[in-house]
């Protein structure tokens, strides 16, 4: 009986304390100028891209920049939803989300709106009404593919015989980066020698290129939908004694801007690498500062500015500035 009463007392005390904590947080929010931000993202272990993305947000949303940040990482949509709801209950000022899946977010975002919390989406879009978030900063995979295809057309090669190595079928990056090239195949401006998925696997990419070489068919372009697969393809070229890169017989194109890949471009082993920028934090930081000063945002969907480097215009400084990983 006695223990039960003590337990009840303790519980009551905890409850009172937590309520007090909530209260003080809400009132103290503007006085000390700290902006409370909740970030829901995929875990850094997902990929090198995600690791760079997480690091970028950690760097920009720091205490030095006037933020108090809570983060949650998961690959599962339902866990992300729970975390977002928790952040809303905790009373953050801004909620930044990179959703694991595009659906199921309407309810949570409506709750955020009711609570007066401003939502930003980054990296990935969601299937929700545009009134539910302030802005979305996203990558456009198709624009990346277009950039690569346009660069290829600008080279004015006498003919384009393309070996196209695709990523995991159905992924955003695969669909976006395949479409512009498929259009060229359909137009007849480029010839499809082989189009095959290596599911992002380097060793599989090597086998695919080996099989093209063994078939004796002519090709002069390798369009690999990420850096790893481009590296695998080049390994097959090297073993068959086919020259590649600057002044080589075969043009090599990769995506993602890994530092090691950019070094291959700098060394002239590859011709082109296209960025898939994981750096959205700075843009969101700027937009939050605008809102805090009472300004309004001009655009809802912000396409993250992305670039490419080819073997003629890349410098070491570019690699240090834009490359991801090491």
């Amino acid at each position: 009986m006695k223990t039960r009463r003590i337990l009840a007392l303790i519980l009551a005390a905890v409850l009172a304390l937590s309520l007090a904590a909530c209260g003080s947080a809400q009132t103290g929010k503007k006085s000390d100028g700290v902006i409370k931000v909740g970030i829901v993202n995929n875990p850094p272990s997902e990929s090198g891209y995600r690791a760079a993305n997480v690091a970028d947000f950690e760097k920009v949303f720091s205490e030095a920049n006037g933020y108090k940040v809570s983060t949650f990482y998961s690959l599962k949509n339902d866990e992300q939803l729970n975390a977002a709801q928790q952040f809303i209950t905790d009373g953050v000022d801004y909620l930044l989300i990179s959703a694991a899946a595009t659906d199921g977010w309407t309810n949570v975002l409506e709750n955020a709106k009711k609570a007066g919390i401003k939502v930003f989406l980054f990296d990935r879009m969601m299937n929700v009404d545009q009134s539910l978030f302030e802005a979305a900063v996203i990558s456009n995979m198709e624009a990346q593919g277009k950039m690569a295809v346009q660069w290829l057309l600008d080279q004015k090669l006498p003919e384009y015989n393309v070996v196209h190595i695709q990523g995991a079928m159905g992924s955003d990056a695969q669909i976006g980066r395949t479409k512009p090239l498929d259009e060229q195949f359909a137009n007849g401006t480029m010839k499809k020698v082989v189009q095959q998925t290596a599911t992002w696997d380097e060793a599989t990419a090597k086998q695919i290129v080996e099989s093209v070489i063994n078939s004796g068919e002519k090709f002069n372009v390798i369009y690999a939908e990420n850096d790893g697969m481009a590296k695998g393809a080049v390994a097959a070229l090297d073993e068959a004694g086919i020259t590649h890169g600057k002044n080589g017989d075969v043009v090599v194109i990769g995506f993602d801007f890994n530092k090691w890949a950019l070094r291959e471009v700098l060394a002239g082993n590859w011709n082109l690498d296209v960025q898939c920028s994981p750096f959205q934090a700075q843009k969101i930081h700027e937009m939050i500062q605008t809102l805090e000063k009472g300004g309004t945002l001009s655009e809802k969907i912000v396409i993250n500015e992305e670039r490419y480097f080819d073997c003629n215009n890349i410098t070491q400084a570019d690699i240090d500035k834009y490359g991801i990983g090491d």
Binding site: S47, T199, W200, D201, E202, A203, T204, K206, G228, K231, G232, A235, W260
Partner: peptide, 16 residues
């Protein structure tokens, strides 16, 4: 062997 083939380790796709 697989690492040496490409000269790169990708924990997500190695021997996928």
């Amino acid at each position: 062997i697989t690492v040496c083939r490409i000269g790169l380790i990708n924990h997500e796709t190695l021997l996928l």
